[in-house]
Nucleic acid binder design. Structure first.
Lengths: 228, 228
DNA sequence: TCGAAAAGCTGACAAATATCATATTTTAAA
DNA sequence: TTTAAAATATGATATTTGTCAGCTTTTCGA
C-alpha cells in the first residue's frame, strides 16, 4: 500500500498543506481503487462518504437535466480532488462522475477530511480557495451557456481541451471523447456537435480521425470565440 | 455608528461565528454606505478591498459576455455577504454588482476578513459551506442554461423570485425588475422575455401591471418547467 | 406639467438549433 | 471472424430564438 506522505499527486492539491502526522493517519484510512473506463465513481443523489484523490486518469462530472439530457460540468484529472463540495455542505451529491479512461484513485473517508478541516486552517483555506476558483469558472460557464452560440462554445471547448490535456507526439489533443461527450460539454444535440466539427474540419481549423482531434488553426478558433 | 455586535443582519450569514472581540474590531473598521437604486457596488475587473454585508436592499450580480450581452448570475439581498469570492482567491472581481433598489451596506476591509479567516476556523468553515452552496446553485444553473428552453427558464425564474422575495399584500412578487433584467436572468433577448410574459398572461398563468408581477397558476409553471 | 428619453410591446422575418430519418463506419461481443 | 450494436455522419425539415423595425406607454428631469 502506497503512502500519502510520498505521493507525488498530493503536491497538486490542498492535501499538500497537511502535516506529516496528518498524512500518516490519512494513509492508514484511505483505500486505493482502480476504476475502469466507463465505470461510475459516484451517482447523482448518492451519499458520498468521502472524497476521491485522482492519482491517474480522467473523469467526466455531469448532471442530468429534467428533459433527459446530460450536461457535463467539468473534466477532472490527475492531481485533483473530487467530492469535496457535497462533503462540505453535507448533502447528497448533485453530480455524477464517470471514468473517461482507466483511473487510479484514493478514497479518503469523510471523517478524516472533516477532522483535518477542523484542525488545520491552512488546509481549510486551501480548500476554500479551490472552491472559489471553481465558483469563478462556474460563473463564466453560466455566461457562456446563456450568451454564446453553439459554434462559439465548441471553439472554446476545443481550446480548453487543448490547454488542459495538451497534445501527443502527433499533435492530437490528449483526451478521448465521444461526439456525444463533446455535445454534452457544449450543451447541444450530438448531431449539431458533429456537424460543426465537420464544418471546422472542412475549413481546415481542425483535423480529426475518429476521436483523435488536432487543432490546425488556433487563431481561427479565437476569432470564432470572440465573435468574428 | 451602529455596532456589528448588535446588528441583526449578522445572524443570517457567516459573521455569526465571530467572537465578541472580533466583532468589536470589525465595528471599528467597517464603513456603512447608502447605495441608491441603479448605483454600482463594484465593477467587473475592479480590485475589491473588502466585502459588503447587505443590511437592506437587493443588488443584481452580473457579467458581460463578449458579444455585448449582460448575464445576471444572481440577486443578493439583505443578510448576505458579497465579494468574498474575489477576496478569497485574491483576484480582481469577475462580476459587477448594481443596486436594484436603495441599499444600506457595510463595507468590511479585506485585512479584517482575512485575519478572521486565518484565526477563526468556525468562520472559515462557514464561509466554505456558503461557497459550496453557491457552487451547487451555479452547477444547476449551468445545466438549466444549457439544456432548458427559454420558456422553461422563465417559468423557473418566476417561481424562484416568488419563493426568494415573497409577495406583498396584493400577491405581487416583492421585487421590481425591468423586462431587460428578467431577460438577463434567463439569458435571452428582451423581446423574447416580453413575448413569453405576454403569453403567460394570456394563458392566465401570471398577471402583471408594469413591473408588478403576480403568479396565478403555480401548477402550470411547474408543468412548463418539468416539460409538459 | 411638459416633452424627451427610456421602457415596453408586437409583427415580420432571419438565423440558429433540434429533431427525425437514414446511411455508413466502427466497436466489441459471441 | 462474424455480426449485431453502437457511434458517426449527413440531409431534410421543424422549432426555437434572435434581430430589426415601428409603435405605444411610462418615467423622469427641466
Amino acid at each position: 500500500m502506497s503512502k500519502c506522505e510520498q505521493c507525488i499527486v498530493r503536491q497538486f492539491n490542498s492535501l499538500k498543506h497537511l502535516s506529516k502526522e496528518e498524512l500518516v493517519r490519512m494513509s492508514a484510512c484511505k483505500t486505493t481503487k482502480i476504476i475502469k473506463k466507463g465505470e461510475v465513481l459516484f451517482e447523482e443523489g448518492e451519499h458520498l462518504n468521502g472524497v476521491f484523490c485522482i492519482k491517474d486518469g480522467v473523469c467526466k462530472v455531469s448532471k442530468m437535466s429534467e428533459n433527459g439530457r446530460n450536461q457535463i460540468i467539468s473534466l477532472v484529472q490527475k492531481g485533483n480532488i473530487i467530492g469535496e463540495r457535497s462533503l462540505v455542505s453535507e448533502e447528497i451529491s448533485n453530480l455524477k462522475a464517470v471514468a473517461l479512461n482507466d483511473m487510479e484513485v484514493c478514497f479518503i473517508p469523510k471523517e478524516e477530511i472533516i477532522r483535518d478541516l477542523e484542525k488545520n486552517n491552512a488546509f481549510t483555506m486551501s480548500v476554500l480557495k479551490d472552491m472559489a476558483t471553481s465558483l469563478k469558472s462556474a460563473d463564466n460557464l453560466i455566461v457562456d451557456m446563456a450568451q454564446k452560440t453553439v459554434k462559439q462554445r465548441l471553439a472554446e471547448t476545443l481550446l480548453h481541451l487543448h490547454s488542459k490535456f495538451d497534445t501527443d507526439s502527433e499533435g492530437n489533443i490528449n483526451i478521448q471523447l465521444s461526439r456525444e461527450d463533446i455535445a454534452n460539454i457544449i450543451g447541444t444535440a450530438t448531431e449539431s456537435a458533429i456537424r460543426l466539427l465537420s464544418e471546422f474540419k472542412k475549413n481546415k481549423i481542425i483535423e480529426f480521425k475518429g476521436k483523435e482531434i488536432k487543432i490546425l488553426d488556433e487563431a481561427a478558433l479565437d476569432k470564432i470565440i470572440h465573435g468574428f
